[in-house]
């Protein structure tokens, strides 16, 4: 298979991160979980839900980019993943036209 080496130029990326790197990401994720539980105990009125969701989004970005390797992956995977996120967001916004602005 070595004679095909020149063909995969486009798929090469920097070296895989090691054990230590992933463990650091994990510590970050655990810390964010602790934070979100702690914040939930404090009454912040209308900010509680957006804040909890913001933390969830940060956590999911960490999982997506590092554990799921999107940051190091082919452009195809990046575009697909972003597109999927955009579609879900759009559907929720469009559903919001009906759900939030109740007319009936």
């Amino acid at each position: 298979m070595s004679n095909h080496a020149e063909l995969h130029e486009e798929e090469h990326h920097e070296e895989h991160p090691g054990y230590g790197f992933y463990t650091a990401i994990w510590i970050g994720l655990i810390a964010l979980t602790g934070l979100t539980v702690a914040i939930a105990g404090v009454d912040m009125g209308m900010y509680t839900v957006p804040l909890a969701l913001l933390i969830a989004c940060i956590k999911s970005m960490l999982v997506l980019n590092y554990f799921m390797h999107v940051k190091f992956d082919n452009i195809l995977v990046k575009v697909f993943a972003a597109g999927c996120g955009v579609i879900i967001a759009l559907v929720i916004i469009f559903l919001g036209f009906d759900v939030f602005i109740g007319g009936s």
Partner: peptide, 16 residues
């Protein structure tokens, strides 16, 4: 993003 045009008489909000 146009699915709800099947539901114009189903009681959606006017804005939607």
């Amino acid at each position: 993003m146009v699915w709800a045009h099947h539901m114009f008489t189903s009681g959606m909000s006017d804005f939607a």
